[in-house]
């Protein structure tokens, strides 16, 4: 690559400034505010403010409901990631073959990604609502006591399905691109050596896909942690009885609905630390197994 040499420091700094400003205003400043607020207890209007040290954090971890929410988040995120990546990989492998109308299938598979989370949730309500949903009514007619508004397990299932469905498209695009970049010669050589399709997939395709898989793993976990808010809010609002409440949803409820900014900020800080830790672990341990 050609190295550009600037004379002096003013111009490069000027060129960097917009990006640095955006990062500062939209990331460092709010994050700093969150850290500062997490040590405070204040009323909704911020008129009376009191420094309470780590009390907000201590209260969080003493709350059995918060611990339950952590488990919910783990179950939810792992399920969404596994399901959306698994299904996307399967679809990508199928779409990678020479079939009639492959382009049309690919376009259709990419579509759901363009659907806004709240709308995605409404679509799933129309399918699974016990009284107005198509499948909800069918299930009830078939004798299954289906009511995700009251059954926590069913509610969790619906939000996992809806969240995973939305992410399949994104994963599909990347897996498909990954598959297409695998050299045909290697696969052909394996075929000549007598390797069957399944064996070719697990010994050649899957290892060569690992950079894509690793990238998607990070992206999907982040998605499940942060971007599923809209789906949960529109489908279950964290209910019934907190069964589908994730960490990000609780931070929203405590901050925006219950107006407890101290606790909400403490939760944001916990989330921030969790994501930093998670990403560090991923890069430290999982990336070693990735073949580029």
């Amino acid at each position: 690559m050609k190295r550009v040499i600037f004379r002096g420091q003013a111009l490069p700094l000027l060129l960097l400034a917009p990006q640095l400003a955006v990062t500062f205003v939209f990331f460092f400043w709010p994050a700093g505010q969150a850290i500062w607020f997490s040590f405070l207890r204040q009323d909704a209007f911020g008129i009376r403010t009191q420094f309470v040290g780590f009390e907000n954090f201590a209260e969080l971890f003493a709350d059995p409901l918060y611990i339950a929410t952590i488990w919910n988040t783990v179950v939810f995120s792992v399920s969404v990631t596994a399901l959306s990546m698994g299904v996307a990989l399967l679809l990508a492998v199928l779409a990678d073959r020479q079939i009639r109308g492959a382009q049309a299938y690919r376009t259709l598979l990419i579509w759901p990604y363009a659907v806004a989370p709240a709308l995605a949730a409404v679509l799933w309500i129309f399918m699974f609502h016990p009284t107005i949903g198509l499948f909800g009514r069918m299930l009830n007619a078939a004798g299954v006591a289906w009511d995700y508004r009251l059954n926590g397990g069913q509610a969790m299932l619906v939000v996992i399905l809806a969240s995973a469905w939305k992410q399949v498209s994104y994963n599909f695009i990347f897996f498909l691109a990954g598959l297409q970049s695998i050299p045909r010669s290697v696969l052909e050589a394996a075929s000549i050596d007598g390797a069957r399709p399944a064996r070719r997939f697990w010994t050649i395709v899957f290892p060569l896909l690992s950079p894509t898989t690793f990238f998607l793993l990070v992206v999907n976990l982040t998605y499940a942690f942060f971007d599923t808010f809209g789906i949960i809010d529109a489908l279950t609002r964290g209910g019934p009885a907190k069964a589908t409440e994730t960490l990000i949803y609780r931070a929203y409820i405590d901050g925006r609905v219950n107006l407890d900014l101290g606790s909400s900020s403490a939760q944001s800080v916990v989330l921030m630390l969790a994501v930093i830790a998670l990403t560090a672990i991923q890069f430290r341990f999982i990336e070693r197994r990735v073949h580029y």
Binding site: L150, N151, G152, G239, P240, A241, K242, I253, V257, N258, L259, D260
Partner: peptide
């Protein structure tokens, strides 16, 4: 104070009741 939260707490506990938990 915090009546919105109290309302939701009651709803949550009722939901667990209606679920038979």
């Amino acid at each position: 104070g915090g009546m919105v939260e109290i309302r939701n707490i009651i709803q949550e506990e009722l939901e667990r009741c209606f679920q038979g938990q």
